[in-house]
Structures are given as C-alpha cells and as structure tokens.
Nucleic acid binder design. Structure first.
Lengths: 280, 280
DNA sequence: TATGGCATCTCACAATATGAAACAAGGAGG
DNA sequence: CCTCCTTGTTTCATATTGTGAGATGCCATA
C-alpha cells in the first residue's frame, strides 16, 4: 500500500527491489538510533519478510551492519569505502584542507568546503577550531543553497536559467525569519555577492549562526566550490564582517590558485573590483 | 551465463537485482576510468538493457552520475553522503585528526588512522606532511591486516580464535618478499607487538615502504583503532625506528586518553620499553 | 513456565525483472 | 553526402524472480 512513496518525478524506469533497498539505506541514514527489523518494516510500510531478505543481502555486501549479536541495523562501512571513491575524483578535498586550516587559524572560526550538487551545497570538508561554539554541520551533509554563505557563493556564479531552474525545483524554504524567500530578493543578494566577492549568511538558516563564504575557481575560471567560516552572531558582528570577509576571500583565492586559476586578478580582486558590474 | 559470479559463500538469501546493482557500484569503484554502458554490461556479463535500467534508477537516486551529456558513468556523491553518515557514529575520525596532525608535525611522515573491519584495516583518516614521498594510500581504502603496521597493531590485541578465523578466511597473501606468510611467524610478530607496544611494517606490502603503528584504546580498554606513520625505507631506518615508535606510541596513548582510556599506564610504558630488540 | 519481541524460514502465487530485438542518435570515415 | 559503426533508449512477451502471509525458532524478561 502507498506504493510510489514520494520521489515525485514520474520516471520511466522503476526497479522495485532496488528502490526499496535504497529506501532502507536512506532510512538508516536519517535515523540517529539503530532501528530494528520491525521498526524498519513499519516505517517503510513493507513486510517483515521483504525487509529481512533485503537486509541480509545488504549485510552480505557490507552496506549494512548489525549492532552486534542482535541490536539494530545501521549503515555499513562499505558505504564509506564507496563514498571515498566517489569524492576521490574531486581531489579538491585534500588540496583544500591546508587552506581551511589556515582559515581556522586566522579567524578562530569553523571552516567549511562545499560544492554545488543538485542544487544543494554538499559539505566536503570541515575544520574546527580547538574550542568553539558547536556549529551544527557535518562532512557529507547537504545544506540548502539559498540561505547559506557557501550556497550563495556558488549560486552567484551560476548562469541565470540554471538558477531559475533550481529555484523552481528546490523552492526557497524559510528556516528563520531572515531567510530569503523570494527569487527577486535572492537575485539581488547574489548580485551583491558578485560585487563584493563574498557571501553572507546572516542567521538565515539558524537563529544565532552567521557565515561568510567565498567562491573557489579552477584552472578554467569556473566556480567549482566555495569555502566559508561559520560562527555565532556575537563573534561575527556587522563591524567585523568586512575584515573577516577579506581573509576568507584571500584564502579562497589562494586555493583557486592552487587549482590552477590564474585569474586576471579579476573579479573580486579584494581591493578594487567593485567598481563596474561584474556581470553575471 | 555465469550466474553466481564469485562471492563464494553460498548464502541462503539472494536478490538478483540488488546483487547486480551492487556489482555495478563495485565495478565503478574499482575502475579509474569511467566506463560506458556497454563496457559495463560486458564486464558484468549482463545485457545492455538490464544494466541500462539499473543505471537509470541508480542515477535517480544519485548513487551514480554521468560524466556530462554522454561520457561514462561514475559513482555519485550520494554515496559520499551515506558513507559520511556511516562513519559518523565512530566519531573517532574527528577526534583523532589533531593527533594525526601532531604526529605528522613531529615526525614529518604521513600519518594514518585505521580500524579493523572484517579482517582488514580500513583507513579512516590520513594526514600528509607538506611535501613528502607519496604514500600510495587513500582514505576509505582497505589494506591487508597481516602486512601493515596499522593492521598488526590491531590484530595483536584480538582474541586468538578470532585471529585464527581471520587468517583462515583471508589467508596470508605475499605482497613482497618480506611479507609474513605463515600463521606461526605472524603470531610471533604479534607477540612482539604486544611486548613493545608498537608494530612495524618492514616493506611487507610495498618494496620501499615502512610503517610504524600503535594501538588506540577506548574507555573500556579495548583496542578500537590504530595509528601509524608511513615513509620510505631511507628515512625510516632501523636505527631511527625505536625513537619514532616512541612518538607514535605517545600519540596513540594521548588519543586513547581522549577516548576515555585511563590505562594503568600499562603495556608499552613508552619510557623503558625499547631496550629490547626492535626486531624485524 | 509463560509471554512477548524479534529474527528467520517456507511456500504458492503473480507481479516483477529480464533480455531479444527494434529504434534513435551521433560521429567517423570514405 | 551517405554509410557504417558505436552507444544509448524503448518496447514487449515471457517465466524468472521477488513477494508477503503465516509458521517457526530464539532469547530475553516477567
């Protein structure tokens, strides 16, 4: 019952077992606790038997583990293995780490590296300062693009039609009262990002959380990632933001250079850019 | 044709589609290049149609991506997402990183953090020194346990029956002429690890590569991980090993303390150990 | 010993995945 | 310009494959 569980887009191809197996994985990914076979089957609206059979196979392949003689089920480490392979091709991650560390050192705030993946900001790497307010993010986590600094730093350099497409598909959900919720506002904000060279998340996703992000370009000049610092509003105050932004931009530019970007000291050259429009 | 493709262990449950889908993922994980639909179907001995259908579904769920309008297929970033969730529960990784960095700082060599997963050493984290000989390992990669320092540091604290079981299942494959290939030799070596508090990989997996590893314990005293440094034989020379081992052990002990181990300053008390032979 | 929660197994049924073959879309080369 | 070849996409009849009700087994706790 309740067959086509969400997933919206009517797609021509379906493979029931596969979809169910993946639903299991997603459920395990979503839950802190480690659900039991029956909890799982209830949550998915599937039969004990069915879920059991799938779990056994998934376990054979290490995509799923059991707590130890009995407990619940959880994601297996094979996924970590595969996931590591999936990001290995973007060696961004390894190359960016020193720069993130430098950023943490210079600002004392948590630093992130993200890429745009299917309209959301996917966090590839995070470096935290020794002791700090806990920023509620994790490596591998997705974040909405329209209300995060990393997200906006990426969106700002997307061709307009793609941007429109994303807005239409993802919507602009409100997380706090500061969240931007109309396309017009968002575009205005992105224009500011292009002019200043950095993006700000002013408590748009979490009440007390502010972020400052800047784009990272590869050898071809394309924006392929963004980095940011994140901290509580009482440390990232309005008057400090320009100064901190300068540091973030500098670091992002260094990383861009590492990736082969020989920018004509072009857009957002920190010092002097903001005279003309930077143009979409 | 060729139905039960390897996977040996005759297990009571089988779900064909799932197994095939996972075979696709494994193939994509194993290949540097990004194979095309037909290459994939040939390699798997499956029909174009079948593979295509599976790929489309896998792509819907982001487990697989295409190169961009046309190229080959490759692993999708959803796997990274799931994989990150899978290791999040062992927060080992984040907590260990500073110690690995310290280790790199103090020794100038590449540092690794591994756990024992199904008889192999799974690399959870790696930190490299600024410029160094490239150590051929990656985060997420599995390594044989019997011929690596991280592996032996873990094996040494396994109950004997489990060890025997592992040896029987994994075998002791030779990678170089230094690789230990008999259970007796291995056990002798592991005894030495227990006495000295550290394990050495003396070019047992790669001709020029040496490693020094030490176990990490959690609050309960159980060995849950190991850390190591790895470098070329001309830097990790016999005479330097005891000194370097001391550093590795100290760092491992600090990490153990961080994890809540209030060890009775027990085995391998760092200070006085090394008078014996360094062995091997 | 009874009880309940959970995992595992069996089996008849039909829904589901399968793969042959036809079609479409490019690209390369003559 | 046309043909040939490679790769991806779609369709459809078929029986292989997955399904789920229910029975059984297992191990706790009461």
């Amino acid at each position: 019952m309740t067959k086509g569980r969400g997933k919206g887009r009517g797609s021509p191809y379906r493979v029931q077992v596969l979809e169910r197996a993946l639903a299991i994985l997603e459920t395990l990914a979503g839950n802190e606790s480690e659900p039991t076979l029956i909890e799982l089957s209830e949550r998915l609206g599937l039969h004990k038997s069915t879920v059991h059979r799938l779990l056994v196979v998934l376990e054979q392949y290490r995509l799923v583990e059991r707590n130890q003689q009995g407990g619940g089920y959880r994601l297996g480490l094979k996924l970590f293995e595969l996931g590591s392979k999936a990001v290995a091709r973007l060696d961004l991650r390894e190359r960016a780490r020193p720069y993130l560390e430098q950023l943490v050192y210079e600002t004392g705030e948590t630093a992130h590296l993200c890429i745009l993946d299917h309209g959301e900001a996917l966090c590839l790497e995070k470096v935290e300062p020794p002791r700090s307010v806990r920023v509620p993010t994790n490596i591998g986590q997705r974040h909405p693009a329209h209300c995060t600094a990393v997200g906006k730093a990426l969106l700002a350099f997307l061709p307009e039609p793609k941007l429109d497409d994303l807005i239409k598909r993802q919507g602009l959900r409100a997380y706090t009262r500061n969240t931007i919720t109309t396309p017009a506002q968002l575009k205005e904000d992105l224009e500011r990002v292009r002019q200043l060279g950095y993006a700000v998340d002013n408590e748009e996703v979490e009440e007390w959380l502010r972020c400052i992000g800047a784009p990272v370009r590869d050898y071809s000049g394309e924006v392929v990632a963004s980095i940011s610092i994140a901290g509580p509003n009482f440390r990232l105050t309005d008057d400090k933001i320009p100064m901190l932004a300068k540091v973030v931009i500098e670091t992002a530019d260094q990383l861009s250079a590492e990736l082969g970007y020989r920018g004509a000291s072009s857009q957002a050259g920190v010092g002097e850019v903001s005279q003309g429009q930077v143009g979409l």
